[in-house]
Computed example of a mutant assay.
Amino acid sequence: MTLTLTPDVVLTDTGHGAVLLDERHGRYFNLNATGSFVLHALLDGAGHDQAADRLRERYGIGTQQAHTDVTALVDALCAAKLAHA
C-alpha cells in the first residue's frame, strides 16, 4: 500500500509530532509523535507491514497492536480526505 497526502494538505513537523493543514477547508489535524512516526514511514514508501514493524521495534508493542494502530491511522487520514492509500 502506498500512502500519499492529497494535494491540498500540508504536513509540518512539530516538537511533539506533526500538524496536517487541509487548505481546502482550513482545518488542522494534530498527530502525536507516534502518529507522525507512522505517517513518515508510510510517506517514505514503507508498506503497511513495514510501518507496523518499525512501530513495533521503536515502541516495543505487540505485532497485532502495531498493525491495528497503522490501520487506524490510515483509515482516519483517508476518511478525513487527507490522504489516499
Score class of each variant (00 low, 15 high):
16 H>G: 04
70 V>L: 13
8 D>P: 04
35 G>Q: 10
36 S>Q: 13
33 A>D: 06
39 L>A: 05
37 F>T: 00
33 A>Y: 05
46 A>K: 11
24 R>W: 08
18 A>C: 13
41 A>G: 08
9 V>Q: 04
66 A>S: 14
73 L>Y: 04
6 T>E: 09
19 V>K: 01
35 G>I: 00
23 E>A: 11
48 H>S: 15
73 L>I: 05
51 A>D: 06
48 H>C: 14
23 E>Q: 12
66 A>L: 12
11 L>T: 04
8 D>I: 05
47 G>A: 06
57 E>N: 09
32 N>L: 00
43 L>Y: 08
60 G>R: 00
55 L>S: 04
61 I>G: 07
21 L>I: 07
65 Q>I: 13
75 D>M: 15
66 A>R: 09
85 A>T: 15
42 L>A: 03
38 V>A: 02
13 D>C: 05
52 A>N: 03
85 A>M: 14
1 M>D: 15
20 L>N: 01
36 S>P: 14
18 A>D: 09
4 T>I: 12
43 L>K: 01
85 A>P: 15
68 T>N: 10
5 L>W: 06
13 D>A: 06
57 E>M: 07
56 R>E: 02
53 D>Q: 11
77 L>V: 04
40 H>A: 12
34 T>E: 15
52 A>H: 00
66 A>Q: 12
6 T>I: 04
85 A>W: 13
17 G>H: 03
66 A>G: 13
2 T>M: 13
13 D>G: 03
27 R>F: 10
22 D>E: 06
52 A>D: 08
23 E>M: 11
75 D>E: 14
53 D>I: 06
22 D>K: 00
4 T>M: 10
56 R>P: 00
31 L>P: 04
63 T>Q: 15
58 R>G: 04
78 C>Q: 10
67 H>K: 11
53 D>E: 13
50 Q>V: 11
45 G>K: 08
34 T>H: 14
67 H>N: 10
9 V>M: 04
61 I>N: 05
24 R>Y: 04
40 H>T: 12
71 T>C: 09
38 V>E: 02
28 Y>P: 10
83 A>Y: 01
7 P>K: 07
56 R>K: 09
14 T>N: 05
50 Q>S: 10
11 L>Q: 03
51 A>R: 00
53 D>K: 11
84 H>P: 12
2 T>F: 13
66 A>Y: 10
74 V>S: 10
18 A>Y: 07
16 H>Y: 08
68 T>W: 07
59 Y>G: 01
64 Q>I: 13
63 T>G: 14
56 R>N: 06
37 F>C: 07
35 G>P: 12
39 L>G: 03
82 L>R: 01
50 Q>L: 10
67 H>I: 00
63 T>A: 14
21 L>P: 02
79 A>Y: 14
70 V>E: 11
80 A>C: 05
28 Y>C: 12
21 L>R: 09
47 G>T: 09
41 A>F: 02
29 F>K: 07
64 Q>G: 12
7 P>L: 05
